[in-house]
């Protein structure tokens, strides 16, 4: 007599695979967000204040990457890195693709925020004798980073969603792990829904975190 397996039972069976997939998703998205933000802030600074010859490569980077689908980017990193003699695994290649993507977006929002700061702020910094790097650290960036926070949270959630594309190059992140579980138990709807729920949890956590930070640094 065949017994209909319960979803909870199957979930229990698949728990380790799913947990590993969940962690992989968080890891690659997290790495991409952290390094992408660092790259993006730097690129944004250069794009705003750099000389034309310094801006040129960053402008090319930002325009090129932003004009390319993330999917293509991930595939490109996966296939091109080894072709260029750089032996990296699927996870590294995928994380690299996401990082480049994140960096290009952050670069543009940082540039926008810096350009929106009134000119008088830099002048006031100069007038009390701050050097440019000092003005940047104490006057301009604190204002720009506050400004980009909501957009940055949005970009971060985009990265988490884009991390599912790593399933195509064989990284067992949450989506691929889910697909593997479904291939075993055929509970398509249940497990896709569950995966969707987990992605929502990650992104909702990012949004909550963003809102907390916003509240903490908000100016009266």
């Amino acid at each position: 007599m065949y017994e209909q397996p319960s979803w909870l039972h199957e979930l229990w069976v698949a728990r380790e695979a799913l947990w590993a997939g969940f962690l992989t998703s968080v890891q690659c998205a997290g790495l991409a967000i952290v390094f992408g933000t660092v790259i993006g802030v730097f690129a944004g600074l250069i794009l705003t204040y750099g000389k034309w010859w310094a801006r040129l490569p960053f402008r090319a980077y930002v325009d090129l990457i932003r004009g390319t689908p993330v999917f293509v980017l991930v595939l490109a990193c996966f296939y091109m890195a080894p072709a260029l003699g750089w032996q990296i695994g699927a996870f590294q290649a995928g994380a690299l693709g996401l990082t480049l993507f994140c960096g290009s977006h952050v670069a543009e929002i940082v540039r926008g925020a810096l350009q929106a700061i009134p000119r008088g702020q830099l002048e006031a910094g100069k007038a009390i004798g701050l050097t440019f790097p000092q003005s940047l650290s104490y006057v301009l960036l604190p204002q720009a980073l506050r400004q980009i926070l909501p957009t940055w949270v949005n970009s971060s959630t985009e990265i988490v969603k884009a991390s599912t594309l790593l399933s195509v190059i064989g990284v067992a992140e949450l989506l691929l792990s889910t697909q593997q579980v479904i291939a075993r138990n055929f509970m398509t709807l249940e497990f896709y829904l569950f995966a969707g729920f987990l992605f929502f949890v990650i992104n909702y956590a990012i949004e909550l975190l963003g809102r907390q930070i916003e509240k903490r640094v908000a100016l009266p």
Binding site: P118, G120, Q121, A124, K126, A127, I128, G129, Y138, V139
Partner: peptide, 29 residues
């Protein structure tokens, strides 16, 4: 920058640093 610090300047638009308190605006320099 050192020469600029020898003069003080007040602007038409004040140009206080909006993310710093009154005290922090003065202590920054």
């Amino acid at each position: 920058a050192r020469h600029r610090a020898m003069t003080g300047m007040a602007f038409q638009q004040f140009n206080l640093f909006p993310h710093l308190t009154a005290l922090q605006n003065v202590t920054l320099g």
